Amino acid sequence: MKRFWKILTTIFVLRLVLVGCGKSSSSSSSSQKQTTVKIGVVGADNRVLQAVAKKVKKEGITIKIVQFSDYNQPNTALRDHDIDLNLFQHQYFLNNWNKTHKADLVSIGQTIIAPLAIYSKKITKISQIKKGDTIALPNDPTNEGRALQLLETAGLVDCKINPNAVRTKKISFL
């Protein structure tokens, strides 16, 4: 039920935003003007956004999903006006990105934060991961931290904060 409300809230917020992005027509014509809104995303599961696209299409709004493979690209594209909105990050990531890039992007609503998972083409169980195997982590500090917590929860690493050094992690691979 909680997921239902998140999806409904996302649809509502996007509808408000997308309607606000449309230009009002000064003509008295009854035909509705089409507006295309480009939304940057990271990840391949766009079911919620596709459901929103169907709903707003009736209001003359076409959503174009712009897929990115790196977490920094959507914010850069938004800052450079290559896309109209993006839909992929949590507030801490946005704050960190703004600080690092001297930008002032703002959140206009909340969205679903996808949980992290461990993916492999060969390994089917955590227990199959052996000492010396390579695991790729996200290339940004906030999601790297989430990934390390996931690996620690899975029993693959032991993250200890060194009290004598600021921002230094000692990672012991088990």
Rank of each mutant, 00 (worst) to 15 (best):
I112E: 06
A136K: 04
S127N: 13
V157C: 09
T111L: 12
L148A: 07
P138C: 11
L150R: 13
K169T: 07
H101V: 00
L150C: 13
I129R: 02
K169N: 09
A165S: 15
S127M: 06
T134A: 11
G155T: 12
S107M: 10
N162S: 13
D104E: 11
K102R: 04
K131V: 15
D133S: 11
I113C: 05
K121M: 08
D133I: 04
K160E: 12
I112L: 10
L148D: 01
I129Q: 08
V157E: 08
C159G: 00
A114N: 07
D133N: 12
T124E: 15
V166W: 05
N143V: 09
P115M: 04
S107T: 13
N139F: 05
L151H: 02
I129P: 02
A154G: 09
K130W: 07
S120R: 00
T168K: 10
D133F: 05
K130F: 04
K121V: 06
A114C: 00
G132L: 03
S127V: 10
G132I: 02
A154W: 00
N162D: 15
N139I: 06
K121L: 07
K102V: 00
D140I: 06
S127K: 13
T100Q: 04
L148M: 06
A117R: 03
K131A: 15
K130Y: 06
N164I: 08
V157L: 11
I161C: 08
A165H: 11
D140L: 06
G132W: 01
K130L: 08
A114F: 05
K130V: 13
G145N: 08
A147T: 04
G155Q: 08
P138R: 02
R167L: 14
N164Y: 03
Q128T: 09
Q128G: 12
A165I: 09
T100H: 03
D133M: 07
P138F: 07
S107L: 08
K102T: 01
G132K: 00
A114P: 02
A136F: 07
I126D: 07
D133K: 01
N143C: 10
L116E: 00
K99F: 01
N164A: 12
P163G: 13
E144P: 02
K160I: 15
A165N: 15
R146C: 10
K130I: 09
P163F: 07
D104C: 02
V166E: 13
L151K: 03
A136Y: 04
I135K: 00
I135W: 00
G155M: 10
K121Q: 14
